[in-house]
Design a protein around this nucleic acid. Structure first.
Lengths: 219, 219
DNA sequence: GTGTCCATGTTGCCGGTGTCCACATGGGCA
DNA sequence: TGCCCATGTGGACACCGGCAACATGGACAC
């Protein structure tokens, strides 16, 4: 597979948000079809998850003929991967924003609160954007586990802060990230697609509180 | 939608395992097409997850014309739900078998070991049968959360034993099931589809050990 | 300015799928 | 013996992902 200048690695997050692009849209050459297609595909994923990402329909909605997409994506999976990256980026952004609201003052209590809020924000994002969240993980590329990058990076930082604050013994730091992520991720999925689907919001929040409490206690 | 005697509620788990059904297969009326179709669909799910469950192909492989399936399933989702039920049942069976190997002697250490092994078996099933496992949860029906039934029931029983053994304070019992399930479920999915995909088995097992240890400590 | 090239977009086509329809069959019961 | 309805068949339609061949026009050389 070599579509020439596929350019699939550049621009880690391509965005366009062309609410109105009067002349660019008129041009025969779209200008930034790739980003526009991703925007449309993200909308599809938001509405119905990965299965709702349909290449032909995305092209149609973007005002372009099908097959035009194949100049920018190797195949549907490639488009899905781009949507996944956007979802991951949005998740990371929301977590970083939340963390920015809770600056670390170096004291343990604050560091613990940051960990709790990071987990809570993760679950809340998943529940607020179920389609995008599930798509993000349904076709995740392996390189998302890069150190310090992505939502994983946020969690890592918070846990490191917990160590420097003296709350978490350093010898227990290794593996703590995986445990935290797994617990929160699993809870989100159990609520989205699993047996906790139709749990009323109030009780769901209570269960999440319990989980975060046990998690902190067990670290 | 009313396909007459759809019979979709009866037989919680329909199985046939007709390795050889010489005369029944010959008959114009198949005899147990529904179960045979589910068998084939389960094979598809095993091989490639929910997306690999294809109605037409399942009918073809079962030696029957497409559309014959519509006499037994409302649509593809209905077939998927049946596959999901089978996956859930198999998960439960494996966990129950594992628990049977570790009888509860009423002492706390044994009860704790049972909890650990329940979690480990959950993850191992997910890793051994990724397609079936993900399909089981991709289209889970809400009624899987019935008390005492399903894999959830196994976990509940083990936790109850932990309380009677005096290891887990009774006031901490509520919500413990959700926390345990979420942690283990999340870890499995992170390994299957997430950023822990290509973790070498040895390290994966180590991470799982750490997770189970933290989980037990935090309960 | 003019001409060429190639990235980008278009139309057409194919095989495959889910789902509806009308029809065929034949097992069981009156 | 004869009828009925559950069950299975064949055909049709719309849609999708993915090739291939063709069209266009922006950029760049001269």
């Amino acid at each position: 597979m070599d579509t020439g200048n596929m350019d699939t690695t550049a621009r880690p997050v391509d965005t366009v948000n062309m609410v109105e692009a009067p002349d660019a849209a008129r041009r025969y050459h779209h200008g930034n079809l790739r980003a526009a297609l991703i925007d449309t595909a993200v909308d599809q994923a938001r509405a119905g998850g990965a299965d709702a990402v349909v290449l032909r329909d995305a092209a149609r909605r973007t005002g372009v003929s099908h097959n035009a997409a194949y100049r920018h994506f190797a195949d549907r999976d490639d488009l899905l991967a781009a949507v996944s990256a956007r979802g991951m980026a949005e998740l990371e952004k929301r977590m970083r924003d939340r963390m920015a609201d809770l600056p670390d003052d170096g004291r343990g209590t604050q560091a613990s609160a940051r960990l709790r809020e990071a987990g809570r924000e993760y679950v809340h994002f998943a529940l607020a954007e179920p389609g995008l969240f599930s798509t993000a993980f349904a076709c995740a590329r392996p390189e998302e586990g890069a150190p310090g990058q992505g939502a994983y990076g946020v969690l890592s930082t918070v846990l490191d802060d917990l160590v420097t604050a003296g709350v978490l013994p350093a010898e227990r730091r290794p593996g703590a990230d995986v445990t935290c992520w797994a617990a929160v991720h699993g809870f989100a999925l159990l609520c989205l697609q699993g047996p906790l689907q139709d749990l009323p919001e109030r009780e769901r929040e209570a269960q999440l509180d319990g989980l975060l409490e046990r998690l902190a206690r067990g670290l």
